[in-house]
């Protein structure tokens, strides 16, 4: 299984967590992911996800003037998004401990 396949679903949770920390725009978000070590996929991958998350109303966006040229789209979490983040954290912790148990038993 490739990393990309494993990441599906997990990336959504990471995006929520980053947006929760601070209001960000697309490039910042991609850069943060890269800093955290997710460098195996292309930066553009976040945009289809962001579009979906906006449709599901877990994030909302506002246009703000930027210093360089056109208006920039900034993302924030909605209450629904915060709830989803909490659920993701709980699910991840359970999953992580389960996986760790499996691996240590071997």
């Amino acid at each position: 299984m490739s990393t990309t396949q494993m990441l599906k679903g997990i990336i959504d949770g990471c995006l929520l967590a980053i947006i929760y920390e601070k209001e960000v725009y697309g490039y910042e978000l991609a850069e943060k992911l890269e800093q955290y070590g997710f460098d195996s996929f292309s930066e553009g991958t976040i945009y289809p996800l962001l579009i979906r998350m906006q449709k599901e109303e877990s994030v909302s966006s506002t246009l703000k003037k930027s210093t360089a040229g056109p208006k920039r789209k900034y993302y924030t979490l909605t209450p629904k998004g915060e709830e989803e983040l909490q659920q993701f954290i709980a699910r991840w912790e359970k999953l992580q401990s389960n996986v760790n148990l499996c691996l240590r038993k071997q």
């Binding site: 490039y27 292309s42 930066e43 553009g44 930027s66 789209k73």
Partner: peptide
């Protein structure tokens, strides 16, 4: 409207990425 929004957003992203020496392949795959 959605087309304009995503094209503008990607344009902004590509500008910033290119300023830091990345190519479009890095963004699009």
């Amino acid at each position: 409207k959605e087309i304009n929004a995503i094209v503008e957003e990607l344009e902004d992203h590509l500008m910033e990425a290119e300023a830091r020496g990345k190519t479009v392949d890095h963004i699009v795959g």
